[in-house]
């Protein structure tokens, strides 16, 4: 049997106000003037893996298709290389828009399950909150445990290599005035960043 899928969108699929919300984020105002030229997608080294190209993301945001954007893989594939941002003929800060979308996807818990990238982001921020610094090897181990423990096994060679070259650090780095940092983070907003993985 041939599988078919309806792709039509109804007005009810739009989340009114979403585009205004994104465009009110500092640095994202220019999105209004996107001309859908595709320079961002053409420049992006990762667009070839994305379900929506960066250009399509701009169109979807502008048309208030919030759920489609936030659940897409695109924002998580963005490597923040800023290639699109410096090339866009309308000087739209696409990378910053991607960040604004990632933040909202995490906040609302809409992202692909067991997708390692948002998990990394959350583990990272949690480690910074607790220690003030990142110890990469420990971070990666936590990530693998959360996202895909089999990856630990397949990466044994990498681990061995790091040990051999003296780059495998097991003693956690930390700052002295951790309390000060936590106080500052708390003052910046009551946005709790404790990991709460969504379905």
């Amino acid at each position: 049997m041939m599988q078919i899928k309806r792709t039509i969108k109804y007005e009810a699929d739009r989340v009114r106000g979403f585009s205004d919300e994104i465009m009110s984020v500092s640095g994202c105002e220019q999105l209004k003037s996107c001309i859908q030229c595709g320079t961002c997608s053409g420049t992006c080294p990762l667009s070839i893996y994305m379900d929506f190209s960066p250009r399509q993301v701009m169109a979807l945001v502008r048309a208030d298709f919030k759920n489609e954007v936030l659940s897409s893989k695109t924002v998580w594939l963005c490597a923040s290389c800023y290639a699109c941002t410096v090339e866009c003929p309308r000087q739209i800060r696409i990378t910053d828009i991607m960040y604004a979308l990632k933040q909202r996807a995490i906040k609302e818990g809409i992202y692909p399950k067991r997708f390692p990238i948002p998990i990394l982001a959350k583990e990272f921020s949690e480690m910074v909150r607790r220690k003030g610094r990142i110890t990469e090897t420990l971070l990666v181990m936590r990530l693998f445990l959360k996202a895909n423990w089999r990856a630990v096994l397949s990466s044994w060679r990498l681990g061995l290599g790091l040990i051999r070259t003296g780059r495998f650090v097991v003693r956690a780095e930390r700052i002295e005035r951790q309390a000060e940092l936590q106080k500052m983070l708390a003052a910046a907003g009551n946005n709790n960043v404790r990991p709460t993985e969504a379905a």
């Binding site: 921020s125 910046a188 946005n191 960043v193």
Partner: peptide, 18 residues
């Protein structure tokens, strides 16, 4: 302290800035 890198920016922009 850690600058926050790309990862923190994805979670909370204001805190990353802090």
């Amino acid at each position: 302290n850690c600058c926050g890198a790309t990862a923190y920016m994805s979670v909370d922009e204001a805190k990353a800035g802090v």
